[in-house]
Design a protein around this nucleic acid. Structure first.
Lengths: 120, 120
DNA sequence: AAAATACTTGCATAGTTCCGCAAACATGCT
DNA sequence: AGCATGTTTGCGGAACTATGCAAGTATTTT
């Protein structure tokens, strides 16, 4: 059931795959979080102009925020004519968060199973 | 089974409680993530000096990084004599991540259940 | 008490981020 | 083609962040 042969370095590498800085970078700004919350509770994809009404930031700034969130995999964008509709990529985001939580728990499980680690 | 009476604003407020900027702020720096990975794979709490060996940052910077992660609820600190031992607060971090994932899914579930939302 | 050890904090600096504005770009309409 | 609409991008400035160094605090050792 457990895998006592994984070394600390291996586990750290496995965890590091889930600790993507650009995901947290995208989510570390409160205006971007407001946009995420807005899109999460919208019943359909929103245009940049629509999304921009939820935070007191100039449209150009909102455009930058949204594309940053898209690049981080948080949002999906679809171009329809001259509009761009953004929606939350719920599977990707919730999935990434759960995978990270699982990876953290897995580290603990292994750490508790084995006795000690020699210093780095 | 479902709760069709929750309004978008309410759901957004509920989600916003889990979208804590300071958590993501703490996790958005790659050196801090390296420290988190190091602590996650350690079999016991590490001192500031021990932790500082995993990233090429001056001890004083590591001290600041660790206390920032502690303030965000990612790490737990215990003072033992003149040493401070930091360990990952796995329950808190993994729990926060899963709660956020659940809150995101809950938004989607409600959004899909009801037909449309009037513009903000 | 003095010295050593572990950590924290003040300060200056270099780099980064966020922002609004204006211009550019892309698409649709007449 | 010309104009309107929606979005993106270049630019400069203000604010913020990470960092190393040096000085400071707290605790243990001698």
């Amino acid at each position: 059931m457990n895998e006592p042969h994984t070394r600390p370095d291996d586990r750290r590498t496995a965890l590091a795959e889930h600790l993507r800085p650009e995901l947290f970078r995208a989510l570390c700004d409160s205006n971007r979080l407001t946009l995420v919350a807005r899109l999460a509770t919208a019943s359909r994809p929103l245009t940049v102009t629509e999304a921009s009404t939820c935070c007191g930031v100039h449209l150009s700034g909102v455009s930058r925020h949204l594309s940053m969130l898209r690049d981080a995999g948080v949002l999906k964008a679809t171009k329809q004519g001259r509009e761009v509709r953004y929606e939350l990529d719920c599977d990707a985001l919730a999935g990434a968060l759960r995978e990270l939580a699982d990876a953290l728990d897995a580290c603990r499980a292994v750490c508790c199973a084995q006795t000690e680690e020699t210093g780095t």
